[in-house]
Design a protein around this nucleic acid. Structure first.
Lengths: 219, 219
DNA sequence: CGTTTCTTTGAATCCGGTCAAGGTCCGTGG
DNA sequence: CCACGGACCTTGACCGGATTCAAAGAAACG
């Protein structure tokens, strides 16, 4: 639903393997390591980004250190779109990632391809809004257990395999869900004890009872 | 910042007084009473709405009755924009309101005016995203006291007078802030006791110490 | 002026947070 | 291959902010 089928220059796929994607005349491909900053809050936002490989988080810091994660972005996702001239969130790589970077202003020079891209950007903004609204509901009116269940289901929906990989640590999950790491951990333990999910190590899980989990999500 | 200066057919202003605005060739003006539904969740979303007079809330209901308010809209605000074909929130009038309703598909027929409108709609969507992101931070990482303080400041920033009117009841505030009415009430009492705001009746207040309130907001 | 609805206040409870160990995972080097 | 070390995760005990339950008080309406 998210990562496939964009017939546009931005659709560089890691599957091609090459360092410079042959289907990719626009933009620059950059590599980031875990924790690397891709752009910072309050920086000028004239670039658009696409995850070619890896995973990214956007976040905002309150003055006293509290942090809220805006969203996570995976292979194929576009991010860094801002309605204004400045980034309202910081973006950082969660794991080793290749990011395609395009100057927004140059898109217009690319004729049809540029137009297709502009359309793609509009679609990405729309998707951003929808996800943010869903996130709102989660933060405002769901319990800790429902939050964690929602998160796991959402993540599993993207991956196509039985086994889903968590590219982020517990602290990132907590800051996305508006919880503490301890609470996240406890809920994961609980969901596992109920036989709804099963973890293999800290960052691999699969959903045992989809319906049971879905019942917890509250919608 | 929000309600003035749109040089477009949608800028019907209540100040003109007439039931049918002379500057308003497009769209239909409709009247709503408190609690009236303007559109429902999961309804088709081919219309765009503008508050000519009054105030509106958008909200979403979980199956068990929990409710999250998406946002409040006041004079001049555009709402009902959806990235997809269906409304993801319900919209209801908070007080007696006049709403201008425009079919989105017809905009294209209006040439320059239609184009101006499309641009206006893009701007409104952008603003929507920014506000939703701010709301996210509030729900995820702010305390009850900070939430209420943020809310009052945000509302006061829109009105130009000393005295600000709350067009919504405590339950609506609570469902916007992810709290209960009791907690909202307690925080209001507390802020008043600290001399930061002053209430005149339940729905009128003014800010006594802007800086003191702002210090509570955490950003 | 009485009725209804909304708001405030108080007391008790509980969910999630805080603080503090203890355990696990995993990369590194012996 | 195993031992070590550090980062990350889990668990437990306790605490506290927000909710819940209950009732009193104000405001709005006819």
């Amino acid at each position: 639903m998210y990562s496939q089928g964009f017939a546009s220059p931005l659709s560089a796929r890691p599957a091609t393997g090459a360092a410079v994607d042959p289907f990719q005349p626009i933009g620059v491909r950059m590599a980031f390591e875990p924790g690397d900053e891709i752009f910072a809050q309050d920086e000028a936002s004239d670039l658009v980004y696409r995850v070619v490989r890896g995973a990214v988080r956007t976040s905002r810091l309150l003055s006293d250190g509290r942090r809220q994660i805006g969203d996570f972005y995976y292979e194929g996702d576009i991010f860094g779109l801002e309605p204004g001239p400045l980034h309202r969130f910081t973006a950082e790589a969660l794991i080793d990632s290749d990011i395609l970077v395009v100057k927004r202003a140059t898109l217009k020079r690319y004729g049809d391809e540029g137009l297709a891209l502009e359309r793609l950007i509009w679609a990405a903004t729309a998707r951003e809004l929808v996800r943010t609204q869903e996130h709102l509901l989660l933060l405002g009116r769901k319990t800790a257990c429902e939050k964690v269940a929602s998160f796991l289901l959402d993540l599993a929906d993207r991956g196509r395999g039985e086994l889903t990989v968590l590219p982020m640590g517990r602290q990132d999950m907590a800051d996305y869900l508006g919880l503490t790491i301890e609470t996240v951990s406890r809920m994961l333990t609980q969901l596992q004890a109920e036989g709804l999910v099963e973890f293999f190590g800290n960052r691999r899980f699969h959903i045992r009872r989809q319906a049971g989990l879905a019942r917890l999500v509250a919608c």
